[in-house]
């Protein structure tokens, strides 16, 4: 008892630790061991050592897909941190400032996050379908028929367009987190800056942003993890094959395609699929540990 009384945190952490370890960590790690086997998902397993990893890196057809998916993940993370996150901060700040109509904006910007992915997929179809979608019909009816496009069917256009859609769907999530954090900034600090005569933009960079920094670093870590493990939106747009010419292929879709086949069935290779997710896991872990170490050491001067 004394042991625990000296370490009260044990009682706080233990229930969660047990639950989390049993239902999240244990299943995932026991499934990771499958990566050393050749296994279709059912039936006997055959131990193959590191053969799955060799295939992943050295089979020309497969490794091409692997690097392509990784590249897409990388660019998506860049877009998240470089485009989506600044927009989220901006929106959160505007709502925090209570610009005209902020309540309704907050609700409507957030709404796409709440709509189930199946319905989002449906929206994407009625807007972007090249044959009867709203966008092409609209372009035609206003006499801009030459700008009609295959949209997601055009491998060069698919990725940028995906970024736009992903932004539209996901922007409200981070925005909410930033709003909650902005509300935590003591008012005196802001009032002091007003007395100093700082203008809107200046105030944002000199007062608000440094105050936001601690939570910002954490959201960078989360965004990176999410960016590297993204699945839902590219899946509903590009399907298990990862879009035309793998333009919307991501690591988790690549994993899914091998581990579970595609709609209508298809052939599966659970063991190989597991090896993909092991590589992905290693990558995410390393990146996030570096980020956590690195970002914690940065202090914003002001």
């Amino acid at each position: 008892m004394r042991f625990i009384r000296k370490r009260p945190y044990i009682l706080f952490i233990l229930p969660g630790f047990i639950l989390y370890t049993a239902f999240v960590i244990y299943p995932l790690f026991s499934a990771m061991s499958i990566s050393l086997y050749e296994w279709t998902g059912i039936g006997p397993k055959k131990f193959v050592g590191l053969a799955n990893f060799v295939t992943l890196f050295f089979n020309p057809r497969i490794s091409e897909m692997f690097w392509n998916a990784l590249k897409n993940n990388f660019f998506y993370v860049l877009a998240e941190l470089g485009i989506i996150m600044p927009l989220q901060i901006l929106l959160a700040y505007l709502i925090f400032l209570r610009i005209k109509g902020y309540r309704i904006f907050q609700t409507l910007i957030f709404l796409p996050c709440v709509i189930s992915t199946a319905v989002i997929g449906f929206f994407i179809m009625i807007v972007f379908d090249p044959n009867f979608g709203i966008l092409n019909s609209l372009l035609k009816s206003i006499g801009l028929g030459q700008f009609q496009s295959g949209w997601f069917g055009d491998p060069d256009l698919a990725f940028p367009l995906f970024i736009v859609v992903a932004t539209w769907v996901g922007i409200g999530y981070g925005m909410m987190l930033f709003i909650a954090n902005l509300k935590g900034i003591p008012e005196q600090i802001i009032e002091a800056s007003i007395i100093d005569g700082a203008g809107g933009v200046q105030r944002f960079f000199r007062v608000i942003l440094p105050q936001l920094w601690p939570s910002l670093t954490n959201i960078i870590v989360l965004d990176t993890i999410w960016g590297l493990t993204i699945f839902d939106i590219p899946f509903i747009i590009g399907g298990p094959q990862g879009g035309v010419n793998n333009s919307l292929d991501f690591m988790n879709i690549f994993f899914y395609r091998y581990a579970f086949g595609n709609s209508y069935g298809g052939e599966t290779a659970m063991g190989f699929g597991a090896s993909i997710s092991v590589v992905l896991f290693g990558l995410v872990l390393i990146v996030s540990i570096i980020q956590i170490k690195f970002l914690r050491n940065i202090r914003v001067e002001y």
Partner: peptide, 21 residues
């Protein structure tokens, strides 16, 4: 097959025919 078939899913393909297009 028309101009636009890349990236079009089965539902949209069937619907396009169903609509009489």
């Amino acid at each position: 097959f028309g101009r636009n078939y890349l990236g079009v899913d089965e539902g949209a393909m069937l619907l396009n025919f169903s609509k009489g297009n």
